[in-house]
């Protein structure tokens, strides 16, 4: 399963990277959302899959799954939500002000002089 997951994670990262490199601001945001899914799954896979019961002591199991990656991912999911929301609003405001979501047109002036 871990091997299969590794390849799946690779595919998610690949699609996310491709989206982030495109010119459309919306596709970039979707790309970051996809990227966070990939990262979460990567964290979970690194900790080992199905190594025991869910990390609840009420299960009275012999072995438990590693709880630490889960705690990390839980934090990451919520943060990713906040960031995605912020990105969306930035995109929305940008479109309102500039009338485009093409990143190449938003480059501003060359240099800082």
């Amino acid at each position: 399963m871990e091997i299969l997951m590794s390849f799946l994670i690779g595919i998610i990262f690949m699609s996310a990277t491709y989206l982030m490199l495109s010119k459309s601001l919306l596709r970039i945001i979707v790309g970051t959302g996809l990227l966070s899914h990939g990262v979460h799954l990567l964290l979970l896979t690194m900790g080992g899959l199905k190594k025991g019961a869910a990390p609840l002591l009420g299960q009275h199991a012999e072995a438990y799954t590693d709880p630490l990656p889960q705690a990390l991912i839980l934090t990451a999911i919520v943060i990713a939500f906040g960031i995605t929301a912020l990105f969306l609003v930035v995109a929305y405001r940008t479109y309102q002000e500039l009338g485009s979501d093409n990143m190449e047109l938003m480059r501003g002036k060359e240099g800082n002089e």
Partner: peptide, 30 residues
């Protein structure tokens, strides 16, 4: 260009995921 870079990222991440699972440098602190 995009495709080359994204495939590169995908491959590297897969390799990392595989290596992370396969090689355990130390015990989990969990």
């Amino acid at each position: 260009g995009n495709a080359i870079i994204s495939v590169g990222v995908g491959v590297v991440v897969t390799m990392i995921a595989l290596s992370a699972h396969s090689g355990k440098a130390f015990d989990s602190i969990s």
